[in-house]
């Protein structure tokens, strides 16, 4: 068995597909207020299932609020996924 994180820890190219010509891997990030995250997750899953999206991984992390920019993803006192 190969652990994804162990592989990635010494050579991230191990995770790369042999070619990205036919298929590729793409990242999207959403910023959700912490208090609406629990309700959002099943709605997100529903969209993935409905469209048969080939999702490899969803990770959640906490980000500090952004108070300065005009196009801020995460608003004061809220947090992202």
């Amino acid at each position: 068995m190969t652990w994804r994180n162990w592989e990635a820890s010494y050579d991230v190219s191990e995770l790369e597909p042999r070619s990205r010509a036919h298929d590729t891997y793409v990242l999207q990030e959403y910023f959700l207020p912490v208090d609406s995250l629990a309700a959002f997750v099943p709605r997100m899953a529903k969209v993935f299932r409905k469209h048969d999206a080939d999702v490899v991984n969803v990770s959640i992390r906490h980000a500090l609020p952004d108070t300065g920019s005009f196009c801020r993803g995460h608003r004061p006192s809220r947090s992202p996924t």
């Binding site: 793409v26 990030e29 959403y30 959700l32 709605r43 993935f48 409905k50 469209h51 992202p80």
Partner: peptide
Amino acid sequence: RWTREMLDTVLASGGRWYLPY
């Protein structure tokens, strides 16, 4: 198509998305 649908869901939950993608 599914991304636009997801963004509606994100907006309905008071969220945003990362713009540079």
